[in-house]
Amino acid sequence: MSIRPFREIKRRKTKTIKVGDVKIGGDNPISVQTMTNTLTSDASATIKQILQIQEAGADIVRVSCPDKDSTKALKEIKKEVQIPIVADIHFHYQRAIEAAENGADCLRINPGNIGDEKKIKEVVDAAVSNNCSIRVGVNAGSLEKDILEKYKEPCPEALVESAIRNVKILENQNFYNLKVSVKSSDIFLSISAYEQLSEKINYPLHLGITEAGGFISGSIKSSIGMGKLLLAGIGDTIRVSLSDDPVEEVKIGNEILKSLNLRNRGVKIISCPSCARQAFKVIDTVKILEQKLAHIKEPVTLSIIGCVVNGPGEAAMTDVGITGGGKGNNMLYLSGVQSEKVISEDIISKVVNKVEEKALEIRNNK
């Protein structure tokens, strides 16, 4: 059952580029990405982690390529994974060339850090020859010396100037297959930088609040910062940066997009908070259902409400719903219509079954 959102977000129009087979920008879905924390040179460990990231719902993954062993490993890694790979390059232009030649779908670089025009041209030529896009990645913690001296400290204007400078370096090489990020660990600095940059360029924007912190604090900072920008229609791909498992970054990224009705992937659960009116253990039930339904990729809405005060109204707007009733007689709703009574002990098995049936129906109707 599709619920019409109260407000439709009008996305800012950007040009479309491709990272592997994933289109970014334009009217294409906002993609979710993360970064591995394995040594890329350890191909087997990196492959294992990327497969977990894929299963969690990532569209793109970035890997660090600080040395030749890492860029060499890309060839083996690419054979075993399905999602596009972005090679993270900081200073050494030769690593960028090797990454492109060994299968990277995108290079994360700042051209100004690569070296002279000859080296930049070699990187661009390798990108073009291997159908590789480029992400210009500006970070408040690593601004160019002259820009930092000009502005005295990282500020939105400094990040934007750095981004435009690096974009122009690539444009001077007739390269336009690129996306841009202007990240900071400060929410307000990041928001302002992205807002200003979105007025100056039409390239796709990669959103992120960098070095956001641990799971709870980082998720909150990322949700506030990126949520503000996404609500304004700014952003074409996102990465939640947490001091945690990359899989958790993917989960939070997808939840941010689901909460804004920008992406419908997986089960969207509507559930009530702790309350004395609950006829069954809602909190424990939701925790278990989140785990048991994590494998579902189809967009299914599910309401888990502990009493009849708000339950029927929420169930009327979801694919599957449970409303708590007296003496353990809870009501199951399917597509907003009462279906059958379910005792509390059977809620989890019944809901899992009905959600899986709905997911299969959606899959078959595609």
Rank of each mutant, 00 (worst) to 15 (best):
S2V: 12
R4S: 13
R7D: 06
E8A: 12
I9M: 07
R11F: 12
T16N: 09
I17Y: 05
V22Q: 11
D27I: 00
V32D: 01
T34H: 05
N37I: 12
N37H: 09
L39H: 14
T40M: 09
S44N: 14
T46A: 08
I47F: 09
Q49I: 04
I50G: 02
L51Q: 09
I53W: 06
Q54P: 05
E55D: 14
G57A: 10
A58W: 02
A58L: 05
D59M: 04
V61A: 11
V63F: 14
P66K: 07
K72D: 15
P84Q: 05
V86I: 15
A87K: 06
D88V: 05
H90T: 04
H90I: 09
Y93Q: 05
A99W: 02
D105I: 04
C106A: 12
L107D: 08
I109D: 00
N110E: 08
G112S: 09
N113Q: 10
I114Q: 13
G115Y: 00
G115L: 01
E117H: 08
E117Q: 13
E122V: 01
E122S: 12
V123T: 02
A126H: 02
A127E: 01
V128L: 12
V128K: 15
V128C: 03
N131S: 13
C132D: 02
S133C: 11
S133E: 00
S133L: 00
E144D: 10
E144L: 06
D146P: 00
D146K: 07
D146A: 00
E149M: 05
K150M: 03
Y151L: 03
E153Y: 12
C155A: 07
C155I: 13
E157K: 13
A158C: 04
S162M: 08
V167I: 15
N174W: 08
F175G: 04
F175L: 11
N177F: 02
L178A: 01
K179I: 06
K179C: 11
V182Y: 10
S192P: 05
E195G: 05
S198V: 05
P204E: 10
L207S: 07
I209S: 04
I209Y: 02
A212D: 03
G213V: 11
G218N: 06
G218K: 08
I220A: 08
I224N: 06
G235C: 05
V240R: 09
S243A: 14
V247Y: 06
E249N: 06
E249K: 07
I252K: 08
G253L: 13
N254V: 03
R265T: 10
S271V: 06
P273Q: 02
S274H: 02
A276C: 01
Q278Y: 13
I283Q: 14
I283V: 09
T285D: 04
V286M: 05
K287W: 03
K287G: 13
I288L: 12
E290I: 04
A294T: 00
V300K: 00
S303I: 02
I304F: 04
G306K: 08
G306I: 00
C307V: 01
C307K: 03
N310C: 01
G311D: 07
A315C: 15
M317K: 14
G321D: 05
I322P: 10
I322V: 14
G326L: 12
G328E: 12
G328V: 07
M331K: 13
S335E: 15
G336M: 09
S339D: 15
I343N: 15
S344G: 05
E345P: 03
K354A: 13
K354H: 15
E356C: 08
K358C: 06
A359E: 09
A359K: 01
L360K: 15
E361I: 11
N364D: 15
N365E: 13
